[in-house]
Design a protein around this nucleic acid. Structure first.
Lengths: 119, 119
DNA sequence: GTAAAGCTTCAACCCTAGTTGAGAGTCAAG
DNA sequence: CTTGACTCTCAACTAGGGTTGAAGCTTTAC
């Protein structure tokens, strides 16, 4: 059981962010009599998944949507639900990349055209 | 010379966005006696570049920075200044993609481990 | 000449993802 | 006990990227 400060330090996020994410319903903690948030391994793992998802470009809304889709039915991690989203995201990224590459080629060509001869 | 409504329709953005972008100093228009904004080819091209840049993930702040760096000295398009930024962005994207691919591999493995046998 | 369509400004508002600060309770150490 | 580190809640604030609405010109069409 971590307390907020410990977990925050451990995962290198702010305490306020942890409170915010909980208030937004994407992570949870265990409250004890003193009112403090305590985080067990499960809470921690879920948080780590959320952070990764965020890092991959998922919004909290998207994350919430996934979580709602399986009301924490069983607990075989979110992977089964994350995977489809991940794959979609990857496809999107692939597309974006291709567009970017094309645009870059175009721009490089343009630059060359506009640069008659180096000084 | 386009007026705001025409240009907006042509490039499929809102008029309010054009006003906003001008107010933010990243695009320009020509004002005439009636106070209307008119856009010449140059204005239009710059706008198109801005929109592309935005689409590629550049923030208005980044775009502004590039624009300041060359006070519109000459006009060989922004390409020469956009290119370095583009290349940096592409590198970042490449890195992100690699991380993603790795994470995806990890997750797929995890899923397989957690799925003893199909139903 | 009058209505509709198009344009202007300006201030206020929206959302996302947090951060900050005040006022107050909790806990461990001395 | 008191001090200091840690935590709580709640409300207000931030920044980025716009959108919305009111009040008032201008231009076009009939």
């Amino acid at each position: 059981m971590y307390r907020i400060g410990q977990l925050a330090k451990l995962l290198n996020v702010s305490e306020s962010k942890l409170r915010f994410l909980e208030q937004q319903g994407v992570i949870h903690s265990v409250r004890q009599a003193n009112g403090y948030r305590y985080y067990n391994e499960d809470n921690k793992q879920r948080l780590e998944i959320i952070l990764k998802a965020q890092h991959m470009g998922f919004s909290l809304a998207e994350i919430r949507a996934v979580q709602r889709q399986h009301g924490s039915k069983e607990h075989p991690v979110d992977c089964q639900l994350l995977l489809p989203m991940l794959q979609q995201k990857l496809q999107e990224l692939d597309q974006q990349m291709q567009q970017l590459q094309q645009q870059r080629r175009d721009m490089e060509q343009l630059v060359q055209q506009l640069t008659p001869a180096a000084p």
